[in-house]
């Protein structure tokens, strides 16, 4: 805990240095950041929107990690989930009470399909899921661009996006005049559900065994190939669901630029949350602050918002050291 705080302080110091380099006053910068993120009900709502968008892929990453799989592909799965949701949502002509679940499930299904492609490569052919998910990220972006601009272009839509979804298909908001929707409680519910699955169910037990000691798990009758496939599919489904909630709750349409890299930042969030679904909620909120405050920081303190991406990258490197060193200390030969 103290080390985590130390890492946070070090990162803040580096961010401050970057602000000075950019010719800004770091105190003003941080103040703008926090004011932008937490300065009023609207700002807090927007921070929670970012939290939600991060939470889905973060849980996806953590879920796969726990099963011993590196899902570097949450970004692609999120895009495909959003794409499917956008394409279906813009064309669906049914009442909202039906449309919303259909769109969300379709998005999750799209993400699952994308994730399970890597799962099949791993389960059936033993292909490295890291490389597979990296490649699938880029293929997802290209596919989305092609479909939205090309054959499935919506009439009336400008640029690389679909037409707007009918208002009846928008996710209900929690706070009037904000983009904060029921996606947040859904994400939190998902986190609690995952915690239950890991701690209480036989499925979760087998999943963790496959991740923590694959050879022992195999000899205990756990089918590693099937576990890898199921884990990647479910991980993809969570990321895809996240993409679908961005489409139905935030943008109300699919846009190829719907993710500023949520799927990658999710890796940092999952690591900060120590792969524990409940702590990941807190971590997602912390990163949500960075995401939503960075624009205000750019506008008012003249600090380029990219400093946030930079710091997030640093956080991943620093926190990976912390987690994996601890891990190895536990398992190294006596």
């Amino acid at each position: 805990m103290i080390r985590a705080l130390g890492v946070a302080l070090a990162l803040a110091a580096i961010a401050a240095l970057a602000m000075i380099v950019a010719g800004a006053n770091p105190i003003v910068g941080f103040f703008a950041l926090f004011r932008g993120a937490l300065g009023g009900p609207n700002q807090i709502a927007e921070t929670l929107v970012q939290t939600t968008s991060l939470l889905f892929p973060s849980l996806a990453v953590a879920f796969a990690f726990r099963a011993g799989l590196f899902n570097i592909g949450a970004e692609g799965q999120l895009i495909i989930g959003g794409l499917v949701a956008g394409l279906i949502g813009a064309r669906l002509n049914v009442p909202g009470a039906l449309a919303i679940p259909v769109i969300l499930v379709a998005g999750a299904f799209g993400g699952a399909l994308w994730g399970s492609t890597a799962g099949v490569l791993r389960a059936r052919f033993g292909g490295n899921e890291v490389i597979a998910t990296l490649m699938l990220n880029i293929v997802a972006a290209l596919l989305a661009n092609y479909l939205v601009v090309g054959p499935l272009h919506s009439p009336g839509a400008t640029g690389a996006e679909t037409a707007q979804l009918p208002e009846s298909s928008w996710l209900p908001t929690l706070l009037a005049d904000t983009r904060l929707t029921i996606a947040l409680p859904i994400a939190i519910l998902l986190a609690f559900a995952l915690r239950f699955v890991f701690d209480r169910t036989i499925f979760g037990y087998e999943l963790r065994a496959a991740g923590d000691a694959p050879e022992a798990a195999r000899r205990a009758g756990i089918n590693l190939a099937r576990t890898a496939f199921v884990a990647m599919a479910l991980s993809g489904a969570m990321a895809g669901l996240g993409g679908a909630t961005i489409v139905t709750g935030v943008l109300h349409r699919f846009n190829v630029a719907l993710s500023p890299g949520y799927g990658f930042i999710a890796i940092a969030v999952a690591l900060v949350g120590d792969l524990d679904p409940l702590r990941i909620i807190v971590a997602a909120f912390a990163f949500g602050i960075l995401q939503s405050g960075s624009l205000t920081m750019q506008a008012y303190a003249h600090v380029p918002k990219d400093v946030v991406t930079f710091v997030e990258g640093l956080a991943i490197v620093a926190l990976a050291a912390r987690r994996f060193v601890a891990e190895r200390a536990k398992t190294s030969p006596a």
Partner: peptide, 10 residues
């Protein structure tokens, strides 16, 4: 892998 992802973002 984690470090590589972080360094790409960085």
């Amino acid at each position: 892998i984690v470090a590589g992802t972080g360094l790409n973002l960085l």
